[in-house]
């Protein structure tokens, strides 16, 4: 790791102030991706601003049909939350399968979506549930938040404060794990609400996205069989030593079918 200057802040205002003053500052949430990246000297921020001391970024609340999860809430807290388990069990399940227990104790929702790793799990849920990302400046819809590989709609001094997840009538997340890293080779989040189906896909392409063709097939026929006829364009799929584009495209359908089956 290159050296840097560490600051722990206790308010959003202080965090914004610190990053504006830093030459090349970075927020750190749980640090479970950022620290390994820095250890390999692939990132070299001048300042690391730790959001871990900002109490208002933590916590889970349910209000009507919306589950609000603070950005600095850990995966372990989401997985163990009876509120989340009751309102959106698929979301609790998803959180409970990110990384491993020790990683889940540090890693956070906000950190995960701000980093936007193409193989991260949370983006699939944000898109699949049609969640809203709330920052210190504005609210961003899930569809508009993820803009590209490791890229989001966030500005440099913008801090995610919470994510608002609407409840669904039924939802499920199916992940096909990379056997080495345990990230998603393909992860599909399917949610059905009032007859409308949304599908969030992660791992398959450069950036998590809505499975529009899948949604089209599933709207009005919410069965696994409906997925069979969907054509998944192979050109856009990631291809690496773990999975070819063709295999990923195939897995998108298999995982979608299994998610649909799990919804019933």
């Amino acid at each position: 790791m290159y050296n840097f200057s560490y600051q722990k802040v206790s308010s959003i205002a202080d965090a914004v102030d610190a990053i504006q003053k830093a030459e090349d500052g970075k927020f750190v949430a749980g640090g479970q991706t950022m620290l390994p990246t820095m250890k390999h000297r692939l990132a070299s921020p001048s300042d690391v601003i730790d959001l871990g001391g900002i109490d208002e970024l933590k916590g889970i609340s349910v209000d009507g049909d919306t589950v609000t999860i603070g950005a600095m809430t850990t995966h372990a807290e989401v997985a163990a939350s009876s509120d989340v388990q009751g309102a959106i069990p698929a979301l609790a399940n998803l959180a409970g399968n990110i990384g491993d227990p020790a990683v889940r104790n540090r890693g956070t929702l906000g950190g995960s979506i701000a980093n936007n790793d193409p193989a991260a799990d949370y983006p699939a849920a944000v898109i699949g549930l049609g969640a809203t990302v709330k920052t210190n400046k504005r609210e961003i819809s899930g569809d508009e938040f993820f803009t590209g590989m490791f890229e989001t709609a966030l500005e440099d001094d913008e801090v995610i404060t919470a994510v608002l997840f609407p409840k669904a009538d039924a939802s499920a997340y199916m992940k096909f794990e990379n056997p080495a890293s345990r990230y998603a080779i393909v992860g599909v989040f399917v949610a059905s609400s009032g007859g409308a189906v949304k599908v969030g896909v992660t791992g398959a392409t450069a950036c998590a996205h809505r499975g529009m063709r899948l949604e089209e097939a599933l709207n009005g026929n919410f069965t696994a069989d409906a997925v069979d006829g969907v054509e998944i364009p192979i050109e856009k799929m990631n291809s690496d030593i773990h999975a070819s584009a063709e295999y990923r495209a195939h897995l998108v359908k298999v995982m979608t079918k299994r998610a649909v089956e799990a919804c019933s």
């Binding site: 640090g31 620290l35 990384g99 020790a102 990683v103 540090r106």
Partner: peptide
């Protein structure tokens, strides 16, 4: 890369990877 877990300790009662914590 935070995979092997040889460094796991407990911080405030829960397991963390001490190689991925400052």
């Amino acid at each position: 890369t935070s995979q092997c877990g040889a460094c796991v300790v407990h911080v405030n009662g829960v397991s963390v990877k001490s190689c991925t914590t400052l």
